[in-house]
Nucleic acid binder design. Structure first.
Lengths: 192, 192, 192, 192
DNA sequence: AATGAATGAGCCTTCATTCAT
DNA sequence: AATGAATGAAGGCTCATTCAT
């Protein structure tokens, strides 16, 4: 019998390697061989598990988005006060697991991939919709009908912060990112 | 019979074609031949004028940034009131010459190119610094020392709006973009 | 729990699967995995039993040729009249076990394999020689020294019929094949 | 201006090289690089002119079939006597331009390709139909309604001769091939 | 100035083969 | 005996780049 249960391990290693490689090179123009080498396996195995390069990239994008959703839900759990829930979403959005130079660089590459890949666009839209829905839901008790609009601009600001920090010379600054976004929400509230 | 003075015409045509091609495909993975064909010239000529593919891409990025700077200066000219100058900068940022689906897509691709190309990063940083300086300068009479910070978040929001609209299913909405950003500035001003 | 005596069963299954797969795809460009899957075993086992892909192909070719020889001998057994023996050889040549679309397609592929594989060529030559010898032997009482030549053209016609029927849009027509060849033999006999 | 009019030269060289390479190796498993090297050009150029490997193979097959048709028409031209026309078709079928070991090997490979390639099958069918039609037309004045059937078996014999000679240890024997086939036709004629 | 023919490096992908279990 | 995980060599194909004309 062959080695059992390697698949999940290999898949995870390849996905991590994909994000790391894209992050390190700053581009989707990474080769399957580079990814495989970083994961410590052969290029053939990468195809064996994912099918093709596009599938590897999309799996990595999916992984980042899933981790993002997880972080937000994790922060939300147990928090009931409206404002606290807003804070949770924003803090989750900049959780260290995703808000690292390497991952942000991959992030931005996947955003742009959404311009040319149907599946990537679908993934992006799910993420974008969910973020806005989460924010709007948390904001409604605080600002009523203004929630949707405020959620929308806040989501745009979050993306802008990602973009700016991703292109910054310095490592992403979690504190500052959270503060900037929460300030925006606070000043956007009628009686802040 | 070689036509005199063709060079500037060819260069401009190739740059426009580059932006259009990247915009249409949503990716930097366009071939020199595709660009050349769109410009109505041979691929050899593209190399002759620009040296190589990277140079073509950077020239296109430079062109977009130059056009951006031009639009902002154009809007600013003649305006002296502080708030009006803020409006000018924001409106210039979303001028129709740049804020079209095709160009925004190229825009985003160039942002990401800055992650892997030194020259692209340099160009991006010049743009980012200038935008913040313009905004801070216009805001200082209105919010004093808070100007730098407000300029910074505003710039981030502008980038976020670009990103969001670039990935939207609809054509970029200039009106809405300007409103969102100006609202942010307004609410960020102490007694707005 | 290893089953005893599985080897002959596995080998037979793999050989059948090889012929079926080549027949179905019409090409030797079948993968070992496809063959193994059709045989219901792993690709590793195919190598275990045969050594390599070439050995599998040659074993399949050998199997077809052996089955061919068997069919002819089977038809010949008990027949003593010269003409009846000629009929036996021709009918054996188009026995249903081999003269099916799928097998004929494999057949033709093996013919062509003989152009590039020494062992395949050897197998083909043995088959070709034996067919001519059988025919000549049966024909000698009927046409004397003309037997060798008539056997030769008859063998060529048999191959031609295989080729034509293999490429026909319809399923191989056994009746017609036998008639065509026997007619040729008959008209080739001085006082037929 | 670049070198003009190279295309037909290159295409011809590549097609010749394809036939030679397939003939020499006895298999369609030749690489584009091998073909290109034999033609004295780069592999990229082969793709440039033909699109892909399949297109190269089909172009070579088409070329052989076209040359075959040409040879037959060439032999037919000027001949009006029925039997002379039959001879012309048969002699054209074994014209030296095609009936060489190398080309016959390619021939056989293309036959088998027709089992798996729609376009190759189409080409084969056109050839097969035309050969039978030519033969039947020439035979009708000689054997009346029997012409169709005699043409059919003759065509099958021609293919069989190709196959047998292609797999023979010796170079194709044009004389013998023609004699075998014409003998078959002659004996198939009522009062031969 | 301008072309497009031509090159060749490099990538994705497939697949025969090996091997640990 | 049997599996299928894993490898890596090799091929088709693309495309930036060069160059003769």
């Amino acid at each position: 019998m062959p080695k059992l249960g390697m698949e999940p391990i290999r898949r995870a290693a390849l996905i991590d390697a994909t994000i790391a490689e894209i992050g390190a090179r700053g581009s989707l123009d990474v080769t399957v061989s580079q990814i495989a080498r970083r994961a410590g396996v052969s290029s053939g195995l990468a195809h064996h598990y994912f099918g093709g390069k596009d599938d590897i990239l999309l799996a990595a994008m999916r992984h980042i988005l899933a981790r993002y959703g997880l972080e937000v839900r994790c922060q939300l759990s147990g928090r009931t006060e409206p404002w606290s829930r807003v804070e949770a979403i924003v803090e989750g959005s900049f959780a260290p697991s995703n808000f690292r130079a390497e991952v942000v660089a991959a992030w931005l590459n996947f955003y742009v991939l959404a311009l040319s890949s149907d599946e990537a666009r679908r993934l992006y839209r799910v993420y974008a919709r969910r973020l806005r829905a989460n924010l709007a839901h948390a904001l409604r008790p605080l600002v009523g009908d203004h929630a949707v609009m405020l959620a929308d601009t806040t989501a745009q600001l979050i993306d802008g912060v990602y973009l700016t920090q991703g292109l910054s010379a310095n490592a992403p600054d979690r504190q500052s990112a959270v503060r900037v976004v929460l300030d925006h929400v606070r000043t956007g509230m009628p009686e802040a």
